[in-house]
Design a protein around this nucleic acid. Structure first.
Lengths: 190, 190
DNA sequence: GTCTATAGGAAGATAGAC
DNA sequence: GTCTATCTTCCTATAGAC
């Protein structure tokens, strides 16, 4: 083997993720990505021969794993539903920095390459999150139809509040959304 | 004066808007915009000396006028609240092609130039839409706090459902969102 | 007002030394 | 595995003819 890695895979993915989330797929130039990673462009190509698209795919895959471990397993666990919801939403609040950071799924769904390349994984992640929310809503006593609806509404509120937060520069819609999601999933007045 | 306009201002703005909505600000290259307009790049610069950013600003301004005429004036009109909501949501359904077309505000809020350039107008448009929704919710009998909350939730659902629709390629979340917004604004079970 | 032509630079991507 | 150097393509933007 040659020289040692200047940055390990986990840390590298973390920096690439941050860049994609900040500026979106198109604006994330290789120069920008390389700078974030502390590497030169050619080194990035060594790690990801497929270029930017492969980087985005890897970032998406790691985000999917994060979702599974930190959100889905919590939502579908076996504690009291209220506790599971609270824990998952707290994790999301932290992950999105209280509304100050955008969602990767939205930022990768813009552009021209997108329409075909990222749709399958994005779809899967949305579907899984909906299933997780629906599970905890059912466990909280809501019927099948109500749970399904509350879960889909929760994802809409999450994404919509992040769009508002980013568009206006005011993160407060995100906190409001988390409250609405909490009530909606637990069947309190919605 | 020289040669006649090959495309009038309204039609030109319409085509530029469509391109920005389809691919977002960064991916909307001058070549793509020129092709959509049926003009050469140099001709676009003649109409918009400030280049792409000025085009986006003009597109945003025209969208703001459209919002005022077709949505705000309907929401704040003086017919029965239920009728106003139905009319406004039908117009939105048509405008977003049932969830198949993205929202300009979201597509322009990505990228690197954005953060400073478009935020003021985007913020204004979100605020106005919220005020319009809140007005009709109040007229439907909800109190001030409920109306304000329902209005903000409506915008979140609108944006979030469009993000889901675009990310997954399935427009159905948008129709669900319109139904939720209808109920929420009129104070039916939410 | 639109066009052709082109400048000047940044983009994605590769070759090959170390 | 990382680097410097380079290639090609596409980008934004301008000059100037008609």
């Amino acid at each position: 083997m040659g020289r040692a890695q200047a940055i390990n895979d986990d840390e590298l993915l973390k920096q690439l993720t941050a860049t994609f989330r900040e500026v979106g797929y198109e604006a994330a130039s290789l120069s920008l990505l390389a700078e974030a990673a502390g590497l030169k462009k050619a080194s990035l190509y060594h790690r990801f021969p497929g270029g930017k698209e492969e980087m985005a795919q890897a970032v998406l895959r790691s985000a999917s794993e994060w979702l599974d471990v930190h959100i889905l397993q919590v939502l579908e666990g076996d504690g009291p539903p209220e506790e599971r919801v609270t824990r998952a939403l707290d994790t999301l609040r932290n992950f999105y920095a209280g509304g100050k950071q955008a969602c990767l799924l939205n930022m990768l769904a813009a552009g021209h390459i997108t329409r075909n390349a990222f749709t399958p994984m994005i779809t899967t992640m949305f579907d899984q999150l909906i299933l997780g929310f629906a599970k905890v809503a059912r466990d909280a006593g809501q019927d099948e139809a109500q749970s399904r609806m509350a879960a889909r509404r929760a994802v809409m509120l999450l994404q919509g509040s992040l769009v508002m937060a980013r568009g206006t520069g005011d993160p407060s819609p995100f906190d409001e959304a988390l409250e609405m999601i909490h009530s909606s999933l637990l069947g309190e007045g919605a």
